[in-house]
Design a binder for these strands. Structure first.
Lengths: 348, 348
DNA sequence: GTTTTTTTTGTGCTCGTACACTTAATTTTT
DNA sequence: AAAAATTAAGTGTACGAGCACAAAAAAAAC
């Protein structure tokens, strides 16, 4: 299997008894070719598996493929720093093949910023796009134009049912809620109450939080030893501190807290300040969370490898554009678990 | 940054006022060049950052680099199936660049098989080698010859202090023992006794088990709420069943069991058969273990992503050989944690 | 039946590097 | 000082694809 029987344009020309130029015209459907010559080439082409030599192609064209990435600016949310690093890494790897990747960073608090960057991308004529469709309406507008120009795009992190993406790379949010519930179940044996906290629910990714909650309560419901659940919605603008302290002092039956976002450090902060010990599970290996993981106030941080995620998204685009390979319609990444003793190997 | 100011041999020739041929001779140190011409070229070369165009190089040479991988045959131990898959994946990715990878699989129960494959590799003249130095003496013999022929090699999975490897990709075994201890600590709150079981300790990777044990007991010792530890060494040939059942019935104080290898399914089997509930932590997402993870008999499986590990090893070799990049002397991969709710995303 | 126009096919050059081969310059020999 | 031998420098070609242009063949016009 996999014998390197790679035919060249020249081989085909000889086999079909025509010139290189004719083969080229048939393969690319450009120029004019007589039916007779066309047939001769087609017969050969059907018999063999011609794969153009990417090396030669790249050498000639100077550039094989132009890819754009439209992701949130990490200036506004540090979470997006590491996906960007992931993109930068593939960028270097494939630069030698003549694939260029340009990043467009939008402000995740400003739909207009998304729209502006989308326009820039359409103007510059990329062959493929990796995009975090953060804003629903704006994203669909953008995708409509991409579809018209038949530019393939891969959605990333946020899944849009109505998008016509060639692939989606993300996480299984509901399942990640289940993972949180299983962890909580394993560490807080005794029955009691659990708190689910959504922080900043007005943001565009509130749907993320809801799916996580669904997974969590679903697992909890299935489990014989189940907990009573209480959901708390809050914004950092409100005074989360007073609400939470009141709640915890009013109801000492609460054994653990599940925070559905990376903002778990806000809760950890309060637990530390008031010297309250609760089991605490949250998301993402960001700086603010790590110190609490180290000190044991946060028990587990769930996350998905963001570099790898971005890396995979770009790799899929390259597979599609350059190698003409099939790519999966949807790829859900592993739900990773970090604690005090293993988080270090994840962050470098 | 990163302007594509890539000079070609021709550019350099013009700048130095010599011919392409002379530049070529200086760069590759072949043929004869007068001191005068040499100086002229060197001056230009020192001023600019010449990076040969890999595309053109590959097109001309037809093959850029030949890499060999010497790893255990998965026919004897399924664990090695997935690293092989990881290698196959990079193989495809870089084939387009003219990098070829050939696998040599040895029998992990037979040092002679390792030696034979090593000889084959040396005969075939590879430019770089990825190797699992499973057998101490045989590996050192092999490395000596590699050093003589100055063929770079990366060790993989097994670390050999005395090897002169350009890099090592593996896991932090001691730390993985600590992770196991932290998990055990989190799920088995109450004090009591824990069992550490080494299965098949006569094998070449017994050093792996000992390091894991060290990490486990070290964490346990540091912890205020510490457990009494008991170590059990056994081979599958012995009757692990009678020993274990006796032990567990004799000492009901035992709360949990830590098995230092992927053979944890042997223990799970016994627990299931005798309807004994203990916390159980072991290694690796192999088929035999997964059913017990699903049924809840195994609580956690610790592992490192084997595809990724192999992938990284090969990528480092390519970075070194093709891109002439610096690579880290040692790369320890994350220690991953799988449970019932998250293992599926790891295995495809 | 010749000229013009259109269609079809074939050839040459380019991308950047590597290497064989030729030519030029220098040194050695007689 | 001229011829031979050696050393140094320069040129041509190939790798495979792509595209511009030239050449040839066929069709249309006179």
């Amino acid at each position: 299997m996999g014998k390197n029987t790679n035919y060249t344009i020249n081989d085909i020309a000889k086999m079909a008894n025509v010139s290189r130029g004719t083969v080229d015209r048939v393969i690319h459907g450009r120029g004019t070719v007589s039916k007779r010559a066309y047939e001769k080439v087609r017969i050969v082409l059907d018999k063999i598996d011609y794969k153009p030599n990417l090396i030669a192609q790249s050498l000639k064209k100077g550039e094989l493929s132009k890819i754009a990435a439209l992701i949130p600016d990490h200036q506004y949310d540090v979470f997006w720093k590491r996906p960007l690093d992931g993109i930068e890494k593939v960028k270097q790897d494939y630069a030698s093949l003549g694939v260029t990747i340009e990043n467009f960073l939008f402000n995740p608090y400003n739909p207009q910023s998304f729209r502006e960057n989308a326009i820039k991308i359409l103007e510059k004529q990329f062959e493929g796009i990796l995009v975090v469709p953060f804003f629903y309406k704006e994203s669909l507008d953008f995708f409509k134009k991409c579809d018209e120009q038949s530019i393939p795009y891969i959605t990333f992190n946020t899944f849009l049912e109505d998008a016509n993406a060639v692939s989606h790379v993300g996480q299984d949010l509901k399942q990640s809620g289940r993972v949180a519930a299983e962890l909580m179940n394993k560490i807080a044996h005794t029955n009691g109450k659990l708190l689910i906290i959504h922080i900043d629910e007005d943001l565009a990714d509130s749907i993320h939080m809801q799916k996580k909650e669904m997974g969590f309560s679903h697992y909890n419901g299935q489990n014989p030893q189940n907990f009573e659940l209480q959901v708390l919605r809050t914004s950092p603008s409100e005074n989360i501190e007073t609400i939470l302290v009141d709640l915890l002092q009013f109801d000492p039956e609460i054994k653990g807290i599940y925070v559905t976002t990376s903002k778990v450090f806000l809760v950890a902060n309060i637990l530390q300040k008031y010297q309250i010990k609760k089991y605490l599970i949250g998301y993402d290996l960001i700086e603010e969370n790590l110190s609490f993981l180290k000190s044991g106030i946060i028990d587990f941080l769930i996350f998905q490898n963001p570099e790898y995620q971005a890396n995979l998204g770009i790799s899929y685009l390259i597979d599609l554009l350059v190698f003409k390979k099939e790519i999966p319609k949807k790829k859900l990444l592993p739900i990773e678990i970090a604690m005090k003793e293993n988080y270090k190997n994840y962050i470098q």
